[in-house]
């Protein structure tokens, strides 16, 4: 029983950490963006403040049962994926004590699909509101997903082929053994995945889903208060998940939390930097973008991996 208690504690810790890291990264981004724009900007805790405020709204509305369920779906998906992802390197001591969660019971393809679960809930909730902007946002998001999924999957296929496994722990272990991170042993795949991550994080120029100007923030346009807050939480956890996944797959994972933070932050800055200097794409341009060079790189990566 002690083991289970520890595991539950570990799971809670993981969730809290993921949430905190995701939120903080968001705050840092806002701060950095402000500095780039020659502003002072909010504190890096601004997102936490926003969240608390959203949760302390006195009234909340929903447009139907799916509108009520949507945020739950998102956070459920986020927490579930988090449970199945190795936050730290399996060889590290911290991992075995605190963060193993359920990582031995899932694999890469499962994670890929599980990550969609939340988006599906979001899409359903957005659809239920009846706001045309929400639906448009959802269709944009789905379309863009078809776009970036291709280079991403190509990269993952290369990875799985190269290491002959679909288990993330194994991939990390092999990278550890060979001493070469995937991003160096197969740089093309890494690049493809990196490009895909631009779409995944939905920073400019790929912020076509939210598109505050023309879509009134898109899918979430009818959500406020606690619903929006829960969605924000889920989104933050997801940001952490994606970063951790990238670190695990391409950078050999992390042995300790600081290492993890450094690596994830470095990765996180890529879409952020890219966003600072880019205006927004139209949807079809975004899709075409992903089907262009990133896909070519991905194919190259697979070929190299097979070689």
């Amino acid at each position: 029983m002690e083991g289970i208690g520890l595991k539950i504690l570990g799971a809670l810790l993981t969730t809290i950490m993921a949430f905190a890291v995701g939120m903080t990264y968001g705050g840092i981004t806002r701060k950095l963006t402000a500095r780039v724009q020659n502003r002072v900007g909010p504190t890096i805790w601004q997102n936490f403040i926003d969240l608390v405020k959203l949760q302390s709204k006195k009234t909340n509305i929903y447009h139907g049962v799916m509108g009520h369920f949507a945020p739950m779906w998102i956070i459920t998906a986020a927490m579930t994926v988090l449970m199945f992802i190795p936050v730290l390197h399996p060889n590290s001591t911290w991992y075995s004590t605190w963060f193993p969660n359920l990582t031995f019971h899932g694999d890469l393809i499962f994670l890929l699909y599980m990550m969609v679960f939340g988006s599906l809930g979001m899409a359903l909730g957005a659809g239920q509101t009846g706001n045309p902007n929400s639906a448009i946002g959802v269709t944009r998001g789905l379309s863009q997903m078809v776009g970036f999924e291709i280079p991403f999957v190509l990269a993952l296929v290369a990875l799985m082929v190269q290491y002959k496994t679909t288990s993330i722990q194994d991939i990390m272990a092999i990278q550890d053994q060979s001493g070469v991170w995937m991003m160096f042993s197969n740089p093309f795949s890494f690049l493809a995945a990196l490009f895909a991550s631009l779409g995944m994080f939905r920073y400019s120029p790929f912020d076509i889903v939210g598109a505050p100007a023309e879509l009134a923030s898109g899918p979430v346009s009818e959500f406020g208060g606690k619903y929006l807050g829960v969605m924000m939480t889920g989104g933050s956890i997801f940001a952490f998940i994606k970063l951790t996944l990238y670190v695990d797959l391409f950078m050999g994972g992390a042995y300790s939390i600081p290492e993890l933070l450094i690596k994830t932050f470095a990765l996180y800055m890529v879409p952020v930097f890219y966003g600072w200097v880019s205006p927004r794409y139209r949807t079809e341009q975004a899709i075409r973008y992903f089907w262009g060079w990133p896909t070519a790189l991905g194919i190259l990566g697979v070929i190299i991996a097979v070689w």
Binding site: Q55, N60, H63, M79, T129, G130, N131, P132
Partner: peptide, 28 residues
């Protein structure tokens, strides 16, 4: 996870939470 979220969302601020018609949307 779903049950946790469900409980959290359903019971938090239950008084102020209400369903509205799908016609009630913010269109500028």
């Amino acid at each position: 996870a779903f049950m946790l979220a469900l409980i959290f969302l359903t019971f938090k601020g239950r008084k102020g939470t209400r369903g509205v018609s799908t016609k009630d949307i913010s269109t500028s």
